[in-house]
Design a protein around this nucleic acid. Structure first.
Lengths: 264, 264
DNA sequence: CGGGCCATTGAAGTATGTCAAAGTTTGTGG
DNA sequence: CCACAAACTTTGACATACTTCAATGGCCCG
């Protein structure tokens, strides 16, 4: 495969009328440079907690960004694993093909998340990652990152921690799904989303769903109809308001109860 | 908490009439020493692929073993994360408490697996790991391991790969569960178990389940009754034979079909 | 403005959870 | 080594939460 994941489809580069600029090329403008210092999510992402030296090392690993329009793929299932990607803005879903041709959503990613760890096992990505809206991600060459980790203990610690967080996120997901009724799953999903929004400085009470009901259903191991019905139910009970993809958590506490214990 | 995870319950040490020997103490007998060279699963575990130097570094990190009787805990939920544990023999389950007091099985572990990565995220284990039979695991001090990784690039690569495999295992599990009917899940579980047995040099066609039907049900997001019924069904159809916990895969190919597509 | 995607809601069928009872295996203590 | 108890497994009957199928309406993008 002579496909360079850091480059991607040419179509991905032209976007919103911007002049096509190769993402691997270092930008000429110094304020849109490839250090993390100006990034909105630097406190969630790799550089968080690193000293000046660690960040200098990190800066050398970063080279340009990948800009994606809604629906475009950051990487594809089966592609060789060469890069981790830090989500800069926009949101993403990871999908996984099943033998029978179906697909399911295995994860959602938001700014500050590191994506692509799944390729570490055997050097190929088992999932595809798709932008749910116009989005941008910073490719990080994995080999170089490991090399850098071998020289910078703080960087190694940071990377390990992020890997651990990825694992824990998986756990939390199965915890949310395991043995729970559909409504509890949807309630849990909304609460988790609210958490994520809060972490990123957005309102925890009101937010926009970036994914379809079908995506949510797939992620939660149920159907889009059940998701829709659950949302309608919560709205009828006054826990939330739903306006298409705009969600308002009117009574998060009650939603939490819905999540924890089955409502009668 | 002044509980030393590498030491564990004193009861865990007395086992099968063996003289109590502190697992942290280096064994006097040279052939039961703490290097990996004599271990049955060295080709699945950490040392795999490491050169002489890498293994020498690794040997210095290992100090004794944790011996557990059936039902005893290797580590507990909430405990500070200090060690990774390499499963040496026996099998394990990881359980995760839910808010409502219930528990669910989040993973099974077999010899060669590295356990405890989940603690990397915030320094505490979110799960407990319990021995399903008499078992032994090698504690590896995490801080020291990271330190060693900073000096040995091959070791770092090996550790990263194992972390990746852990992540992928999670993915595979959700893939097995996601959107599938109970029978397909059980079929998938048997096939995965068969894989694991084969990897470890045991028969892929005939093996003993180390876990209860309830454990399997919990792991697969269903009930013990459904697991039992699925097994009975497969047996009636001639795909497998079931003698309590002894399973024989008579027709793995047909089982694979049961796993992939719904049988009519 | 039109077409396609997405969301909502209803009705009906079914897979699976729940409850219960009986049989089996395993472990313990005399 | 045997006997008893506890834990586990199997199987049946029943209830129900959820999927599936279908039809309608809204939203967004070209």
């Amino acid at each position: 495969m002579d496909f360079n994941p850091a480059l991607g489809d040419v179509a991905a580069i032209r976007w919103h009328g911007l002049a096509p600029s190769l993402p691997m090329a270092r930008s000429a403008a110094p304020d849109t440079c490839d250090t993390c210092d100006t990034c909105a999510v630097r406190n969630l992402c790799l550089p968080c907690g690193l000293d000046r030296e660690g960040r200098a090392i990190l800066a050398k690993l970063l080279s340009g960004r990948r800009r994606l329009r809604k629906g475009q793929k950051l990487y594809r299932e089966g592609e060789p694993f060469q890069f981790l990607y830090a989500a800069r803005f926009g949101s993403f879903k990871a999908i996984c093909r099943l033998r029978d041709g179906g697909e399911y959503v295995s994860a959602f990613h938001f700014p500050g998340d590191l994506m692509g760890f799944d390729g570490m096992a055997d050097g190929h990505h088992p999932t595809s990652v798709i932008a749910l809206e116009n989005a941008e991600a910073c490719p990080i060459a994995y080999e170089q990152l490991m090399e850098a980790c071998a020289h910078s203990s703080p960087l190694l610690k940071r990377v390990s921690r992020l890997m651990g967080m990825q694992l824990v996120r998986e756990y939390r997901c199965s915890k949310m799904v395991s043995g729970r009724h559909a409504e509890e799953r949807v309630a849990g999903f909304l609460l988790q989303l609210s958490e994520w929004m809060k972490e990123r400085g957005y309102s925890a009470r009101e937010f926009q769903l970036r994914m379809s009901r079908a995506d949510i259903g797939s992620y939660l191991g149920t159907t889009l109809e059940t998701v829709s019905r659950s949302l309608s139910l919560f709205a009828r009970e006054g826990c939330i308001t739903v306006d298409n993809r705009r969600i308002q958590l009117v009574d998060p506490e009650r939603l939490r109860i819905c999540h924890a214990v089955r409502t009668g």
